[in-house]
Amino acid sequence: MADEPTLGEVVRRFEDRLTDVRDDIKQLGERIDTKVSQEVYDLRHEALASRVVALETLREKDAEKLVATRRWLIGAVIVPLVGILLPVIILLTQGAGAG
């Protein structure tokens, strides 16, 4: 008989468990309130995907501009410079060899 809890002890334990269950239900409710609905998630995902596509397109355009700038640099600066300097170098080497 000494091992059996009293009626007051049983009620106290039951109230503790009931309080624990209420706290758990409250925490679950708070967690559910913070979750995003599937529709909102899908809309955000689609918006993010479209931003990524736009950024990739801009990156490709920038890469094309870089290639065009390099081609312009070669065509407008380096080729004429070589065209001017090459005959001068040839004349200087021939003149140094003749003397």
Rank of each mutant, 00 (worst) to 15 (best):
Trp72Tyr: 07
Leu48Met: 13
Ile32Ala: 01
Arg44Gly: 15
Arg13Lys: 12
Ala96Asp: 10
Leu85Asn: 11
Tyr41Val: 05
Leu86Ala: 15
Ala2His: 14
Leu7Pro: 08
Leu7Phe: 13
Thr93Glu: 09
Arg13Phe: 01
Ala2Ser: 15
Lys26Arg: 08
Leu85Pro: 01
Lys61Glu: 05
Leu48Tyr: 14
Tyr41Gly: 06
Leu73Phe: 02
Gln38Ile: 04
Thr19Gly: 07
Asp23Glu: 13
Ala47Asn: 13
Leu73Tyr: 01
Arg13Glu: 13
Arg17Gln: 08
Arg22Gln: 05
Ile74Arg: 09
Asp62Pro: 03
Lys26Trp: 01
Glu39Lys: 09
Arg22Trp: 02
Val36Ser: 12
Arg17Asn: 08
Glu56Leu: 04
Tyr41Trp: 05
Leu28Phe: 04
Gln38Tyr: 06
Asp42Pro: 00
Val10Gln: 06
Ile78Tyr: 14
Thr34Ile: 00
Ala98Gly: 07
Val77Thr: 14
Thr93Met: 08
Asp23Leu: 02
Gln38His: 06
Glu56Arg: 02
Ile74Asn: 12
Asp23Met: 00
Leu58Ser: 06
Ile78Asn: 07
Leu66Ala: 12
His45Lys: 15
Arg17Cys: 05
Leu18Lys: 09
Gly97His: 09
Lys61Phe: 00
Pro87Ser: 07
Leu66Arg: 04
His45Ser: 14
Ser37Cys: 02
Arg13Ile: 04
Gln94Arg: 13
Ser37Gly: 10
Ala63Phe: 02
Val82Gly: 11
Leu73Lys: 03
Thr6Gly: 12
Leu81Cys: 14
Val79Tyr: 14
Thr6Arg: 06
Ile89Asp: 10
Ile84Thr: 14
Ser50Ala: 12
Asp20Tyr: 00
Val52Gly: 08
Ala96Lys: 03
Ala54Met: 06
Lys35Ser: 09
Arg70Gly: 15
Ala96Leu: 10
Val79Phe: 13
